[in-house]
Design a protein around this nucleic acid. Sequence first.
DNA 1: AAGTTACTGGAACGAACATTCCAAAACAAG
DNA 2: CTTGTTTTGGAATGTTCGTTCCAGTAACTT
Lengths: 202, 202
Amino acid sequence: MPRPRSHSRSALVDNAMKAFWKIGYQAVSMGDLVRETGVSRGGIYSDFSGKQELFHACLDRYQEAVVTPAFAQVEAEDADIDAIRCYFDNLLIGFEAMEGFGIGCLVGNTLTQIDPSEEATHEKLQAHCTRLFKGFRKVLARENGPNGPLSAAELDDLAHFTMISAQGLWSYSRLTDDGAILRRYAETLLASIETRPRGARS
Amino acid sequence: MPRPRSHSRSALVDNAMKAFWKIGYQAVSMGDLVRETGVSRGGIYSDFSGKQELFHACLDRYQEAVVTPAFAQVEAEDADIDAIRCYFDNLLIGFEAMEGFGIGCLVGNTLTQIDPSEEATHEKLQAHCTRLFKGFRKVLARENGPNGPLSAAELDDLAHFTMISAQGLWSYSRLTDDGAILRRYAETLLASIETRPRGARS
DNA sequence: AAGTTACTGGAACGAACATTCCAAAACAAG
DNA sequence: CTTGTTTTGGAATGTTCGTTCCAGTAACTT
């Protein structure tokens, strides 16, 4: 007898995520969200207690709908260093396909808009970075092999290096519309990374 | 006969800059600015047409009061690659001296809060990145020498690499309070850069 | 002293905001 | 159809925002 939902919760979150991504957490208004999601104010507030809770759901959705597919090759059990190359290559295909400036990474964008006292949000952002770190770290360790030239601490460093540089790439994609610069950045980065576990230096 | 100013314009901009830096362009309110600068609403509006114009003045002030001193060694006429090392080292001393999370770079923070249609702001951010790029580029070219292993295009790439990575470092300083990770990031970056003009590889 | 200018503190304003509320509409089941 | 439930569009509410305004006061000149 109850009327079923006319809007799906996941479609709501999906569109809201895109709005937060494009416009930014602070700048987006509930009016924007109503327009972009096609769900009424009442509908949104019946599913979420407010803007922040909806945003948290969007951060989770970002992980599963954006990060998981993009990062799948790196997180695969048998991934080698070419998976990292592939990950960056796919990012760049995205940048190059886009006209005008990029919109960056939702996590990176949010990072500069909240202050660390909003702990729940802050922890989600940290979790994202930890996820990337662990993904890279595992691949680099495999590439290094059981008796490779890199110590555990050096693997940590290199994985952090990769993760933070990837964030820099996303961030700079908002500022330049020259995909070639971004591509050469990624190539320089990959060259730096690939040299290491293959034993060119300690 | 006119009464002289009781507040200095540069102190106003200086304090406003800090507020924008800490709290963010979108999140800071005129009330915050009044409190942080100690200048009344009327005083602010008599010097600036509004929040945005004040912010632009703050971006300019950031260049001269923050970037210029921090970057002076790199921009010096006789700078060599140790100047770059020194630049990062000073950044890290700053990170390590700070308790809790960092506040990032005003430019990097702003980058994710405005959309590119605000052209005047966007151009100021691009100018900042160009400045860093040119500073690094000149040092790397000098280090490379007139007949060094790196071509002009490779010098461009490496300078972009350094600049974007520096932005990544600033950005990640907002997310971690572990200065050691940031320091090792910088060391890995410097190791990558230093290998190149010294001819270890083409 | 008077005159002139500059700043303050806060009131006032309209716009925009997040959130709440509800009458009407849409739908499903009987 | 009727009844029960859910969703909608938009009005209403109370807050906060950027901005304007001004009476009072402080500082300087003559």
